[in-house]
């Protein structure tokens, strides 16, 4: 089950410059592990050591911010669309 993951500019160093890559997983957490297997180093940029999604990384599944759908536990259906966007924020 291939899921398209849109990669932001800042993380394209991990994907050989690709704007989108395919990955698989029944949940977002599994998908991130699959991403990590093919693009080592990317997981650390998305997930805290505690296992939580980083505060200033936004991940959307089918246009829904996963903070409102169960975070890394969010289930992915076949053909789901995943978008990763760093927050635009500051002080």
């Amino acid at each position: 089950m291939a899921i398209e993951v849109r990669i932001p500019t800042i993380l394209r160093t991990y994907t050989g410059g690709e704007k989108a890559v395919d990955a698989s997983g029944a949940t977002l957490g599994a998908l991130v592990d699959d991403l990590e297997a093919n693009h080592p180093g990317i997981k650390e940029r998305l997930v805290e050591e505690s296992g939580e999604l980083r505060r200033f990384v936004n991940v959307y599944v089918d246009d829904e911010d996963v903070r409102f759908t169960g975070g890394l536990g969010t289930e992915l259906s076949d053909g789901a669309q995943v978008v990763i966007l760093p927050a635009v924020a500051g002080g």
């Binding site: 936004n58 959307y60 246009d63 911010d65 903070r67 978008v83 966007l85 927050a87 635009v88 924020a89 500051g90 002080g91």
Partner: peptide, 15 residues
């Protein structure tokens, strides 16, 4: 007055 952040839904639409 000391912090800004684009709303996450607006951010997705913008991109």
């Amino acid at each position: 007055p000391t912090f800004y952040e684009f709303d996450s839904t607006d951010l997705l639409r913008l991109y």
